[in-house]
Simulated scan of single mutants.
Amino acid sequence: METDSITIDDLYGISPVKSDLRRELPESDVRILTSGGLKIPVHSSVLASISPVFESIIDRPRKHQGSEKVIPILGVPRIAVVSFVRFLYSSRCAEEHLEKYGIHLLALSHVYLVPHLKQICSKHLAQRLTTDNVVDVLQFARLCDAPDLYLKCMKLVSNHFKAVESTEGWKFLQDHDPWLELEILQFIDEAETRRKRTRRHREAQSLYLQLSEAMECLEHICTEGCTSVGPYDVEPERKKGPCSKYATCYAIQLSIKHFATCQKRVNGGCLRCKRMWQLLRLHSSICEQSDSCRVPLCRQFKLRMLQEKRRDDSRWKLLVKKVVSAKTISSLSLSKRRREEEEE
């Protein structure tokens, strides 16, 4: 088979105008042999300084000392090898080569331990993932130990599994790599578990925030008064109009009115009264000013617990803790929002 060759000028684009640069380069002492017989002249000092794998290859003793040092890089397109060598010299890679040979360059950067090129290839491939190519890229990311690219592939497969499942890549994977298929299915299952956990957490946080807001409205009604309900010593004509949290405040007012007049409350037969009772107890568990607090039964709840020496159950303690935490987070968020508005 006839062997092609490539010169330093061809490889690095050195024209006669740039002849000074040509004179500065020493003679190449190594050649890289690609598929198709192309020989690329390179410098052992450059290769050894960038890649420990090349350094190890170059340092190996040769059978014939006078023979030319040749490093074969086979199994990938020769243009990909040319682009790889150009990167070793210039730390740059043509966009069209990344587009066409990104997978091959990723493999070369992994085999010869060139982390900067590996990062560039991983980023480029991650930006061009589709449901059609994601399985192929995922396999290479796994083989080439590219965790960022691997994770992006897994997320795309998880989010668009129905579309990926119908591709040829997935069918090939099922027939030839059952372990990777199992990894993908486990990732999808864990991702769904995380989504459910996050959804439950958000729902719980929303509930704690609602209870925290209810506590604020309860204190506001019993201290300042709001529309139709207020402290016993506030004259009706002096009661304030709707507050900023009137939707919650109005519901609390209706509950207070019902609680004050309900006949079933005595024997615990009313669900609305029971909920109001729990709100008052929750307020008492949170309140730090029971002596001066104007919320009904606040001090009585605290005294009753002291007299009976009763400990709240762990679930109630957790509820109190979560409501206090939600109130603190809400206050911090409000303060931050106000500061941002003032800065604007």
Rank of each mutant, 00 (worst) to 15 (best):
S109P: 06
R310M: 06
R339A: 15
D312P: 04
Y12R: 13
I6M: 15
P52N: 03
V157S: 00
R304Y: 10
I73H: 12
E340R: 13
K100A: 09
R197F: 02
S109K: 04
K257G: 03
A251F: 01
W277I: 06
P16M: 11
Y232W: 10
K100V: 11
R62H: 08
V135N: 02
S325G: 05
V42T: 15
F161Q: 01
L282T: 01
S333Y: 10
H116D: 10
L138Q: 01
I221N: 03
L209Q: 14
S255N: 08
L297P: 00
L297R: 04
K239R: 15
E219M: 02
H104T: 03
Y12G: 12
H124R: 14
A326D: 00
A247S: 12
V134T: 15
V17K: 14
F140P: 00
A214P: 04
H201C: 02
S284C: 09
L209S: 11
C287N: 14
S28D: 11
D29G: 08
K69G: 02
M305W: 06
A126E: 12
G75R: 07
S244E: 13
S255D: 13
K171M: 05
L108G: 03
C217M: 11
V82S: 05
G269N: 04
R62V: 13
S19V: 05
S325I: 00
S244H: 05
S290D: 12
S335H: 05
L138W: 00
C287K: 07
C249T: 04
E343P: 05
P242G: 01
D177Q: 06
T7R: 08
V229F: 06
H97K: 10
T131Y: 07
P77E: 13
L21H: 08
P242S: 07
T328L: 04
L318R: 15
P77I: 05
R338C: 09
G75P: 00
P26R: 11
A126W: 03
L47R: 00
A80F: 01
I73M: 09
T198N: 00
S331L: 15
Y208H: 14
V76C: 09
H124M: 14
L143R: 15
I286W: 06
T198H: 07
A326N: 10
E341M: 15
A146L: 06
I120G: 02
E342F: 06
L209I: 11
A204K: 13
E288Q: 15
H110T: 15
L185G: 01
L129V: 02
Q300D: 11
E99S: 14
H176G: 00
E2H: 04
S109G: 04
G269D: 05
V157H: 00
W316Q: 01
D29N: 12
E235D: 12
F84Y: 05
F301I: 07
L254Q: 04
F187P: 01
Y89D: 14
R304S: 12
T167Q: 11
K264W: 05
E165L: 10
W170G: 03
